[in-house]
Design a protein around this nucleic acid. Structure first.
Lengths: 234, 234
DNA sequence: GGGCATATATGTCAAGTGCATCTATCAGAC
DNA sequence: GTCTGATAGATGCACTTGACATATATGCCC
């Protein structure tokens, strides 16, 4: 059985390669993604084909900016999968795009065919699984088959990397308060966190630098603004 | 600039898709991988093309068994990358194959063109980066360009998932002692661990079941054999 | 100036981790 | 049979980490 392949010339099957991008942000304290509202009235992730001369990341960036122009975003490759068919196989490589702050406002204002959906995570901790999506009003929505699993993988990845990698800062503007940072963590982890402990833990990591500035517009004591120091990816 | 793409038909570029597999195990307390010794005398990961009708995982399994027949292994997708060229782009999708116990002995005995190399991780914790490879004797080796980065990503992934996911059990036989489990953890993490603390932590997770059997052949008190309960992947 | 809502700091307690030490149990030497 | 060596497995304790509660500080609004 193994001899069937041994020494055989392994010519690669030509395949179509698509990139799917998950534009994700925290809106009103809840994880949210932008989905494309295709003609078939079915919601799907922004997707496009890999073109000649592109790396995967540049293709993901191009597709993101073409279909959901969110401005700056932190891109991270998520997972690849193949949908085998008789003739040719299609490969889809999923990327997560973490969009800071209110980066979803601009693309939603434009005439784009975009829909903002909230992501509900029905599992606790790092159990994993698929997720539910609904409108900001709370009405449940249906997704293209498979996309719910991709979103679940994205949430799982974020939860796992959150407290050792600094991905959380990609969801915040350049200057932010500790409360905003805590809101991001609570939204991704799906749990309420203790404020003093969270503050100490974050400050002890050495990732934050106090700017000396304070937030404005609050009708109470303004919080200090911090800045992220370490590189965003690793 | 963005308008250039807007609404344009996104036909995917046909590309070659290859699967690279990293057969990894713990040999003599050190992370080790099997590399194919090609005709060019350059060491490279076992690689093959995706064929019609295959999923990515089935292709990875086929390529692993054809080029490095290690028997049972736990497969996990690692990363995908594209090498853009003028004409057609080549996609490589890397998989890690965790091989239990002495699963490397059989393929090395066979007439396969396989080389066992030890992996040295020059960075601490989850910093990440490339790794060094050397023979079991300690002589440094050169890899195909890019493979050192893939191996580094594999080690980083293992370190990150080790203590919450149970990937470590994929590197052990079905029944194992707590000392063997600790050896695996120490090899992957690159640090020495405290024995009582490690034992308590593992038993408290609820993943282990005592079989009542004991190891044999030791010239000292035999250790109890345990079994892994939770699903290996998650 | 007083009320209010939140930021920021402190104090206390439980849980987890690291370390040293003790006991148990095998094989082999004598 | 007894002793010795080596490792498994268990126990006790200092220290660190984190959650939780509480107190103080500081801005706007009235």
């Amino acid at each position: 059985m193994q001899d069937m392949f041994k020494g055989a010339p392994m010519s690669s099957l030509p395949a179509e390669v698509d990139i799917a991008v998950i534009p994700m942000s925290i809106v009103d304290g809840v994880p949210a993604v932008l989905l494309a509202n295709g003609a078939g009235a079915e919601l799907a992730l922004p997707t496009g084909g890999l073109m000649a001369g592109e790396t995967l990341e540049s293709a993901a960036l191009r597709i993101l900016q073409a279909q959901a122009p969110v401005g700056a975003a932190y891109l991270e490759q998520l997972y690849s999968f193949a949908t085998p068919a008789a003739g040719r196989t299609a490969i889809t490589i999923a990327y997560v795009a973490l969009v800071p702050g209110d980066g979803f406002a601009a693309p939603l204002r434009g005439g784009e065919q975009l829909v903002l959906v909230e992501v509900g995570v029905p599992w606790a901790g790092e159990a994993g699984g698929r997720v539910d999506v609904c409108t900001p009003g709370g009405e449940p929505l249906a997704l293209v088959a498979g996309d719910a699993d991709i979103l679940g993988q994205a949430m799982l990845r974020l939860r796992g990397k959150l407290d050792y990698s600094g991905v959380g800062f990609a969801l915040l503007p350049g200057r932010f308060t500790l409360r905003q940072l805590q809101d991001v963590h609570e939204a991704i982890l799906g749990v309420r966190l203790n404020k003093p402990a969270f503050r100490r833990r974050m400050l002890d990591k050495g990732w934050l630098e106090a700017t000396g500035e304070r937030e404005t517009g609050a009708s109470f004591r303004p919080a200090e603004l911090y800045r992220f120091l370490a590189p965003k990816g690793a």
